[in-house]
């Protein structure tokens, strides 16, 4: 197995192209909310949050790819995951609504989204302001389950490998390919959020709330089609 196999190259390039052409539309608001939520602790904390969110998301993609490869069937695995994915839409929508309200100054979450397990705390000691940023690792892990047509396509390819390692690698490379677009969306939100903080920061929060409500609506639509 070599990384220059056409399937692996297609996965990383598909993630790269799809990241800017597809993922920004669906996940851009989420990653923008992540960076805005942490930006009170500075730009570095905002970008660290985006990085941890991406790590979580790519890890979940990899696990899903490995499961698809091991099962050798996309339909069987997604059939079992459908209700969890539906829940992921609701949860992501609800989280975005809460973060949006927090960003808009209408609700103080003050770290309630953080996961403060011992391992997190230990790891946190090695970073500057890590705890808020690290809170987005489990969020990324969870939101990696969001139903997405583009990621489905690469899961189909992962299942086609009929091999857990290769399937996991396909989805890992796909996820890696989407990181530049997702990071750009987060950075853009930070840029806008910082430069216009005094006037438009709250408006950004309202947009995040609306995006969260949109995700919940999509969850209802997805549920209706299960």
């Amino acid at each position: 197995m070599t990384l220059n196999e056409p399937l692996f190259l297609a996965a990383v390039s598909g993630g790269l192209l799809g990241g800017f052409g597809h993922c920004i539309g669906m996940c851009g608001p989420i990653v923008s909310a992540v960076s805005l939520k942490s930006s009170r602790e500075g730009t570095a904390a905002g970008m660290a949050s985006v990085a941890f969110y991406n790590v979580g998301r790519v890890l979940t993609y990899s696990a899903l790819g490995a499961a698809m490869g091991a099962a050798g069937s996309f339909v069987n695995v997604t059939g079992r995951l459908a209700h969890i994915q539906n829940m992921a839409l609701y949860v992501s929508g609800a989280v975005m609504v809460l973060m949006g309200l927090d960003i808009a100054g209408l609700l103080r979450l003050s770290g309630r989204l953080e996961i403060q397990g011992r391992w997190i705390t230990r790891l946190a000691g090695r970073w500057g302001h890590p705890r808020t940023a690290l809170a987005f690792l489990p969020l990324g892990l969870w939101l990696g389950l969001l139903p997405c047509g583009l990621s489905y396509t690469f899961m189909i390819a992962a299942a086609g490998t009929a091999d857990a390692l290769r399937g996991g690698l396909v989805m890992f490379l796909f996820g890696l390919g989407t990181v530049p677009a997702m990071t750009s969306a987060g950075a853009l939100a930070l840029l806008v959020g910082t430069s216009l903080r005094n006037r438009l920061y709250r408006m950004g929060g309202v947009l995040v709330v609306l995006s969260g409500l949109y995700l919940i609506a999509r969850g209802i639509l997805f549920h209706a089609n299960l």
């Binding site: 297609a10 598909g14 192209l17 799809g18 052409g21 597809h22 047509g149 583009l150 396509t153 690469f154 189909i156 390819a157």
Partner: peptide, 10 residues
């Protein structure tokens, strides 16, 4: 493929 939406190679 899906017209108007990039869905990767299938």
């Amino acid at each position: 493929s899906m017209p108007g939406m990039f869905m990767g190679e299938n």
